[in-house]
Amino acid sequence: MLEIRDLRATAGDKEILRGINLTVNPGEVHAVMGPNGSGKSTLAQVLAGHPAYRVTNGSVSYDGKDLLDMEPEERAQAGVFLAFQYPVEIPGVSNAYFLRAAYNEIRKAKGLEEIDSMDFIDLLEEKLRVVEWGPEIMSRAVNSGFSGGEKKRNEILQLAVLEPRLAVLDETDSGLDIDALRIVAAGVNKLRSPDRSFVVVTHYQRLLNYIIPDFVHVLSNGRIAMSGGKDLALELEAKGYEWVEAAAAAPAGAGA
């Protein structure tokens, strides 16, 4: 469903992605790991269409469509979702209002009728359970004054409501205490399905104890330096990122 070919992207004058190749099939969970500055968050944001990055080369095809040619909202309407590393606070608009606006835009794009606020409340009730929340959170302004953990839970709630086919989680574990991590990870696991794929960007192996990936990729210096199964994450935890960087510097063919 997602085919990334030789993707290069810059922020300002700096090239951050330097030739990414990645294929994600329906239902798969891919973990993307790497040290700070390796480009993993950039990859996540480029997939969602963040305007701060410029794609200079390569292609991304999503369901056979050219993802890079689509506006951020078109990507979302087509089923791509990015859980932000730093969710944005929007004082003045309630969580319920924002989420219903997004939900209805996606329905409209699919040619479906908009849902009214009463029916939306019913739908929310079920989705709130995914992140073990009560309805109070919906009347608070979007992420405004939320704790770090609440913001990440809110991202997963949005994921649950918007039901994307490709969910990209950008360091969803950062800044979470162990309880919040468990809730967030459990939420993600509830949302796994044979036709929904995940790209889980994370710095630490910790999250992958809860969200078991099918594949693990390690980014180094804007490229995938190593790929493997879920055990690769454990090996990384033991040996550190230097090990990957050393392996990546070794002659071609030595990698996976």
């Binding site: 969602a48 909202e73 990507r75 932000f84 944005v88 794009a109």
Partner: peptide, 9 residues
């Protein structure tokens, strides 16, 4: 970008 990434034009 946040709002657009949620499908809002």
């Amino acid at each position: 970008f946040y709002a657009r990434s949620r499908g809002v034009p």
